[in-house]
Each structure stands twice: as C-alpha cells, then as structure tokens.
Simulated assay, not measured.
Amino acid sequence: MSNYINDLRQKVGNAPLILNTATGALFNNAGEVLLQERVDTKDWGFPGGYLEYGETYKKAIMREFQEDTGLSVIPEKLIQNTDDTFYKYPNGDQIQSINQFFLVRYLEGTLLSVKTGETTRLKYFKLDQPPQFFNEQHAEMFKKIQRMRE
C-alpha cells in the first residue's frame, strides 16, 4: 500500500474513502489475459492499484504493472471507467473505487516468480475459464474483455 494511503488511513482508520485506481488487461499471444492472485484474499484480479498523489491513471497503471508483475507496459486503450464499486477489505478498510481499466501492451520484462507484498502468483487465463475474483468490479471487467474479444 502506498505511503499516501497509509497516511490517510492513520488519520481516518477504516472510514470509507473515495480512491482512484488504474487496472490493466494484458493479453499473451494465445489470447489469454494476465491476472494476479492477491495476498489479502487469495482471489484473483487484474494488475493495478491506487494512484499516488499527482499521478495520472496512465502513469499509475505503468507503475503498478511493474511493481505487481515485473513487466513494463504501456496503456493503449481505455476500456472503461467505473465509479460505482464499493468494497470492504478483509482488514475493515472501506472504499469507493473510481477506476480506469486499460488495455495495455507489453514492452519488456519477465513475469515475477516470487511472492510480493500484494501478489501471491501471476497466471494467464483463457477467457472462457474465469477464476474466482476478489470483488464484483474485477468480475465485471473480465466480462467486458470477454465481450470485447468476441
């Protein structure tokens, strides 16, 4: 979690916050999409995360992909913008997520093979075999890319 969010949480505890997030869909040559298994829930989601103060959505997805996956990517297309997701984390933190979901293109790098503070593992999924997602927003994003690729 970023210092910005840690600082906010020290002031407001678990009180609801409105936070901006950026997530990305990266496809491999077989048409599978990369997802990350999360440390906190052990469920799956798209790589991404919270914007730092002063950061753009595009810069955030590039940074988050590097941190979460080890890959350098560039956002190519905004797939959707959502603002109606409310989520309560296992630790009690509550948020309303304003999210921009991008189609991203691989630039360079190798997938991380070690557990990080946020990611247990990374895996490419076929679009007809969705995993258990950690929240409804990510499940809906998966459905969106399924429709997009039909």
Rank of each mutant, 00 (worst) to 15 (best):
M1Q: 10
I5W: 09
N6C: 03
N6D: 14
D7L: 14
R9D: 15
V12I: 15
V12M: 02
G13R: 10
I18V: 15
N20W: 07
T21N: 05
A25E: 02
A25L: 04
A25Q: 01
L26Y: 04
F27V: 00
N28R: 05
N29Q: 12
A30I: 03
E32Y: 00
V33C: 12
E37W: 01
E37Y: 00
T41E: 06
D43F: 04
W44D: 00
F46Y: 14
F46H: 11
P47V: 04
G49N: 10
Y50W: 06
L51H: 06
L51N: 04
E52P: 00
M62I: 14
R63I: 06
R63W: 09
R63G: 03
E64R: 13
Q66P: 00
Q66C: 02
D68H: 12
G70M: 08
G70Q: 07
L71E: 04
V73M: 09
I74V: 15
P75N: 10
P75L: 08
P75W: 12
E76A: 07
I79C: 05
Q80I: 11
N81A: 09
N81H: 14
T82E: 12
D83L: 06
T85Y: 05
F86D: 07
Y89C: 00
G92P: 02
G92H: 08
D93C: 03
Q94F: 07
I98S: 01
Q100Y: 05
Q100I: 01
F102A: 00
V104C: 07
Y106P: 01
Y106D: 00
L107V: 14
E108T: 09
E108D: 15
T110C: 04
T110E: 15
L111K: 06
K115T: 13
K115N: 07
G117D: 14
T120R: 13
T120V: 15
L122T: 02
L122W: 08
K123Q: 14
K123C: 01
F125L: 02
K126G: 02
L127G: 03
D128C: 05
Q129S: 10
P131V: 03
Q132R: 09
F133T: 04
N135Y: 11
E136D: 13
E136N: 11
H138M: 06
E140P: 00
I145R: 08
R147L: 10
R147T: 12
M148Y: 15
M148R: 12
